[in-house]
Design a protein around this nucleic acid. Structure first.
Length: 833
RNA sequence: GCCGGGAUGGCGAAAUUGGCAGACGCGCCGGACUCAAAAUCCGGUGGUGGUAACACCGUGAGAGUUCGAGUCUCUCUCCCGGCACCA
C-alpha cells in the first residue's frame, strides 16, 4: 500500500535533506558554465507577501532547471535591511530598530526555507551589518577622492513641530508630517551627492546593448536620463545686470522670441523681490506649492513681469522678462527664451498675458495658422520672418543659428540631461553612516580605511522623530584624522538604494576582506535578474551606475550587472492589487499550511506567464493540489516496478530504453510520440521562462500516460511498461524545478541514486517523433471541411487525390471548378475553388 | 500630451510567430460510487439553429494584404503601466 500524499511530511523531509547535504552551496568552477540567478532581495518588513512568493518561485524554477542542464548555479539570498519602517517601529513602539529587523529576518528566512527555495545560505547577507556596510563606506571614500561624491546644498522636507527632516514617505499627500500633522516646509541644507550625471551617456548608450532587458524598462530609463541636444547662449539685460543664460533645443526659432522667463529662484527674480513686495509674494507662493504630481498637473501657468527688459541678441529688440512658475531652476539654466509661435507652453503663456505671437517657421509647401496653438513641426518646414536666417529647413536653420549664437552671443552647443545627481544623504537614523568627519572650519575629512567601519549604534533611544545619533555625542564627537583636533562626525546616513546597488556583487565574495575579490569576476554579470517592475528606474539605474563605478575603481571587469532582466507581474485578487486597504490580501503562510509549498508554487507558476499580472484564485490552488495528488498516485503505482526493473540503469542511462525490442505496437508508438512531442514543448517553454505552458504540457503528459496505464492495467508486454515508465521518469524530471519536494521524494521511491537536483534534464528522443502517417486538415476556400490521413512521404498528387475524395470536401466544392490546391507540407491542405 | 504593454469562452489563459482558435486549469452541467454528503473517477462544456448529420457566426470596432489573419498593414475605441510645465 502506498501512503497518501502528505505535503507537510514530504516537504519537511526534502528540506532536511537539502539542509544536511548543503545541496545549494556552490563554489567557483572554471570548468563548468556558470549561471548566476538572482531575485531581488526583500526588505524584512515582517512576513513574506504573495509578490515575494511569486518572484522567488520564478527564480527557483529557473535555477533548478539550469542546474539540471549541467550549469554551476549560484542562487543567493539576503536582506535589504536598512530603512524607514524599522525606524518608524522604533519610534512608535519603542522596539529597537535593529531587534525589529533581526526578528523579521529570522521569521522570513524560515518562510523561505519552508517554501523550499534552493538558496546558498552560506552567502546570506544583511545590509545593516557592519561587515557589509563597512565596504560601502570604504567605497564612498574612494568616490569622494575621485570627485564622484560631493556635498552641496539641497532642499529637504522640514517638519517645524518635530524640528526634523522628514523622508518623502513621511509626508502625506496634503503636505503634512506623518506624526505632527504640521504643514511641512522646504529647507535647504548641505547634503551628499553621487555624480551619476558623469555616467549619463554611458548609462544611456549601453541600454542599446542589453537585448535581454524588456523594452519597457529600457524606455523608462531613457526617459529618466532624458538627454536633449541644444544650444546655450546669453540674452543681455538692460542696465548693470549680467546677461540671462538660456538653453534651447530649438535655436532655429530664436528669431521668434517675444519674451524671456526665469524661474522664481533665479538671481534676477530674487534681486527684484528685495524691493518689490508683489514679486516677493509671487515667488513665495510658487515655493509653497506642493510638488505632487496631481498638483503639477492642475497648476496654471502664471507669471509676473519684472521691471526690466532683455535685449534680443540678433535684432536688439526689447523683450519683457517674466518670472514664471513653469520655469524650473533645476533644469537647463533656470531661464528660457520664449517663442510662443513654436512652443505650446510659451504659446499658452503668451495668450494669457497678451504677448505677441510671432511666426518664424511654416510648412515648406504652405502656411500655418497660429490662432489655435503653436506650430511645432521640424520636417518639411522653412524659416520665415527671420531676416538673415530666412528660407532654411530645420537642420540648416539649426546649424546656422547655433553658429551665429556661438559667435555673437557667448553660445555653445550643449547636451542637457533630465537626470540629476543622486542625492544619497538621509537625515535618518536606521541607515549606513556617511563616513566623513568635519573639522572646526567645516572642512571635509573622509574616515581613513583603518578606522572603518563607522558603526551605527544599535542600542539607541528615540525621543520623537529626530535621528538619535544626531544628539548623541558618543557618536558624533571624534577627532579629525591626521591633525587630531576635535571634529564632528557626519550624522547623515545613506539612502538605502546605496546598499542595494552592489549587493549582487557582494554575494559573489562572502567573507572577503575587501569590498570584492576575484570571485566576483567569475560569477558576474548576473545571468538572470528577477524582480518587480517598480524598480525599473531607480534601483536598476543605480545598480548599473555602481557596477560601472566599481569597474572604474578596478574591482570588476564587466560593464553591466544584469544580462537578462525579468520583471514579474503583480499579484492581484479579484482583479485588483492585493493591499491592506482593499482588504484582499492572501497570506502565503496560510496557503502553505493548508496545501504545502509545492501546491502554492505550482499554482503561482501555472496561473499566468511570469511577466503578466496574476489573479489569485483559491479554487485553482486546490486544483494544483489535486494534480499533485494524481501525480503522487500514478508515480507510486509504478515506483516499485521501476525500482526493481530499472534500478542499476542509473540516472545517466535513463533515456536508454531498449526500444529495438519491439516498436510495432501502435499504442506504444503513440504514447512515445506524445511523450517526446510534449517534452520538446516543455523544454522550449523552460528555455523561454514560460512556466505556465510548461506546466500545462506536463499535465497533458500526465493525462496521456495515466490514460495509457489505465487502459492497460495488467500489461505484461515489456514494451508498454517501458513506455509508461519512460513517460513517468520524464514527467517527474520536468516537474522537479517547479515542485521540487514531491519530485525529490518520488525520485527516491523510484530508486534514484542521485538526488533529482543533479539528474540531467531529460532529452528528446528524435526517433520517437518520426511518423509514418500524418493527419492533415483539409480546407475548402480556407474553411475547415475535414481531415485526411496520408503517408508522411506521400506526393502532392497523392495528397490532393485523398483530400478531394473526402465526402465533406466534395459536398463543399459542389459544381464549382477547382482553381488550385495549396499544400503546406506537414501542415494543411487548402482547395481553392 | 508623450512612451511602453494590452483587449481571445463564465474565469485564468494557449496558439510552435501567417496554417485545425480556445491547449492546460478553474468553474459549471450530467453520470458512476454512496443511505446521503464530501472526496475520487468518467463524460460534456465558445455562440446560434437543428433530434441529428451538419450549417452559420466567432479573437475590442472598421477597412486592407493573402489561398488562408488572433497573428501582418492602416484607422479608431477602451484598459493597464510609466513619464511629463524638461525649454
Amino acid at each position: 500500500m502506498t501512503s497518501e500524499y502528505d505535503p507537510n511530511r514530504v516537504e519537511t523531509s526534502a528540506q532536511q535533506y537539502w539542509d544536511q547535504n548543503e545541496s545549494f552551496t556552490v563554489t567557483e568552477d572554471p570548468d563548468r558554465e556558470k549561471f548566476y540567478c538572482l531575485s531581488m532581495f526583500p526588505y524584512p518588513s515582517g512576513a513574506l507577501h504573495m509578490g515575494h512568493v511569486r518572484n522567488y518561485s520564478i527564480g527557483d524554477a529557473m535555477s533548478r532547471h539550469q542546474r539540471m542542464l549541467g550549469k554551476n548555479v549560484l542562487q543567493p539570498m539576503g536582506w535589504d535591511a536598512f530603512g524607514l519602517p524599522a525606524e518608524n517601529a522604533a519610534i512608535a513602539k519603542g522596539v529597537p530598530a535593529a531587534n525589529w529587523t533581526y526578528e523579521n529576518i529570522e521569521y522570513m528566512k524560515r518562510q523561505l526555507k519552508r517554501l523550499g527555495f534552493g538558496y546558498d545560505w552560506s552567502r546570506e547577507l544583511a545590509t545593516c551589518k557592519p561587515e557589509y556596510y563597512r565596504w560601502e563606506q570604504w567605497f564612498f571614500t574612494r568616490l569622494f577622492e575621485k570627485g564622484l561624491a560631493y556635498r552641496k546644498m539641497a532642499v529637504v522636507n522640514w517638519d517645524p513641530v518635530e524640528q526634523t527632516v522628514l523622508a518623502n514617505e513621511q509626508v502625506d499627500k496634503d503636505g503634512r508630517g506623518w506624526r505632527s500633522g504640521a504643514l511641512v516646509e522646504k529647507r535647504e541644507i548641505p547634503q551628499w551627492f553621487i555624480r551619476i550625471t558623469a555616467y549619463a551617456d554611458e548609462l544611456l548608450e549601453e541600454l542599446d546593448r542589453l537585448p535581454g532587458w524588456p523594452e519597457s524598462v529600457k524606455t523608462m530609463q531613457r526617459n529618466w536620463i532624458g538627454r536633449s541636444e541644444g544650444v546655450e547662449f546669453d540674452i543681455p539685460v538692460e542696465g548693470d545686470h549680467p546677461p540671462l543664460r538660456v538653453f534651447t533645443t530649438r535655436p532655429d526659432t530664436m528669431m521668434g522670441i517675444t519674451y524671456v522667463a526665469v524661474a522664481p529662484e533665479y538671481p534676477l527674480a530674487r534681486h527684484y523681490a528685495e524691493t518689490d513686495s508683489n514679486i516677493a509674494e509671487f515667488i513665495k507662493s510658487c515655493q509653497s506649492i506642493s510638488t505632487s504630481e496631481a498638483a503639477l498637473e492642475s497648476m496654471d501657468k502664471v507669471g509676473l513681469q519684472l521691471p526690466v527688459h532683455a535685449i534680443h541678441p540678433v535684432t536688439g529688440e526689447k523683450l519683457p522678462i517674466y518670472v514664471a512658475n513653469f520655469v524650473l531652476i533645476t533644469y537647463g539654466t533656470g531661464a528660457i527664451m520664449a517663442v510662443p509661435g513654436h512652443d505650446q507652453r510659451d504659446w499658452e503663456f503668451a495668450r494669457k498675458y497678451g504677448i505677441e505671437i510671432r511666426k518664424v517657421l511654416r510648412p515648406a509647401n504652405g502656411d500655418v495658422d497660429l490662432e489655435h496653438g503653436a506650430y511645432l513641426d521640424k520636417v518639411d518646414t522653412v524659416s520665415c520672418n527671420s531676416g538673415q536666417f530666412d528660407g532654411l529647413d530645420f537642420q540648416a536653420c539649426f546649424d546656422t543659428t547655433a553658429d551665429y549664437l556661438t559667435e555673437h552671443a557667448g553660445g555653445k552647443r550643449t547636451i542637457n540631461y533630465r537626470l540629476r545627481d543622486w542625492g544619497v544623504s538621509r537625515q535618518r537614523y536606521w541607515g549606513c553612516p556617511v563616513p566623513v568627519i568635519y573639522d572646526q572650519e567645516n572642512n571635509i575629512h573622509p574616515v581613513p580605511d583603518d578606522e572603518l567601519p563607522v558603526v551605527l549604534p544599535e542600542n539607541v533611544e528615540f525621543r520623537g522623530v529626530q535621528s538619535p545619533i544626531r544628539e548623541d555625542p558618543a557618536f558624533y564627537e571624534t577627532t579629525v584624522p591626521a591633525s587630531g583636533e576635535l571634529g564632528r562626525r557626519e550624522t547623515d546616513t545613506f539612502d538605502t538604494f546605496v546598499e542595494s546597488s552592489w549587493y549582487f556583487a557582494r554575494f559573489c565574495c562572502p567573507g572577503a576582506d575587501a569590498k570584492l575579490d576575484e570571485r566576483a569576476n567569475y560569477w558576474l554579470p548576473v545571468d538572470h535578474y528577477i524582480g518587480g517592475i517598480e524598480h525599473a528606474v531607480l534601483h536598476l539605474l543605480y545598480a548599473r551606475l555602481y557596477h560601472k563605478l566599481m569597474r572604474d575603481i578596478g574591482l570588476l571587469e564587466s560593464d553591466e550587472p544584469f544580462t537578462n532582466l525579468l520583471t514579474q507581474g503583480m499579484v492581484l485578487k479579484d482583479g485588483v492589487k492585493m493591499s491592506k486597504s482593499v482588504g484582499n490580501v492572501v497570506d502565503p503562510q496560510e496557503m502553505i499550511d493548508q496545501y504545502g509549498a509545492d501546491s502554492v508554487r505550482l499554482f503561482i507558476l501555472f496561473a499566468s506567464p511570469p511577466r503578466q499580472s496574476l489573479d489569485w484564485n483559491d479554487e485553482a490552488l486546490a486544483g494544483a493540489y489535486r494534480f499533485l495528488n494524481r501525480l503522487w498516485v500514478l508515480s507510486n503505482r509504478f515506483a516499485e516496478r521501476i525500482k526493481t526493473h530499472y534500478l542499476g540503469r542509473a540516472e545517466f542511462e535513463l533515456d536508454q530504453f531498449d526500444w529495438a525490442n519491439d516498436l510495432s505496437d501502435q499504442p506504444t508508438r503513440q504514447l512515445r510520440l506524445q511523450t517526446h512531442t510534449l517534452l520538446k514543448r516543455i523544454s522550449l517553454d523552460f528555455d523561454r521562462q514560460q512556466y505556465n505552458t510548461a506546466i500545462a504540457a506536463s499535465m497533458e503528459l500526465y493525462n496521456a500516460v495515466s490514460a495509457f496505464a489505465a487502459n492497460d492495467d495488467n500489461i505484461e508486454s515489456t514494451v508498454r511498461t517501458d513506455a509508461t515508465v519512460e513517460a513517468i521518469l520524464i514527467l517527474v524530471r520536468a516537474l522537479a524545478p517547479i515542485v521540487p519536494h514531491i519530485c525529490h521524494e518520488l525520485w527516491l521511491r523510484m530508486g534514484g541514486q542521485l538526488t533529482i537536483l543533479d539528474v540531467a534534464w531529460p532529452k528528446v528522443d528524435e526517433s520517437a517523433l518520426v511518423q509514418t502517417t500524418i493527419t492533415l486538415p483539409v480546407q475548402v476556400n480556407g474553411k475547415l471541411r475535414g481531415q485526411v490521413q496520408v503517408k508522411t512521404d506521400a506526393s502532392r498528387d497523392e495528397i490532393t487525390a485523398t483530400a478531394l475524395d473526402l465526402a465533406a470536401v466534395k459536398r463543399n466544392i459542389g459544381a464549382r471548378e477547382i482553381r488550385k490546391v495549396i499544400i503546406v507540407p506537414e501542415k494543411m491542405v487548402n482547395v481553392v475553388v
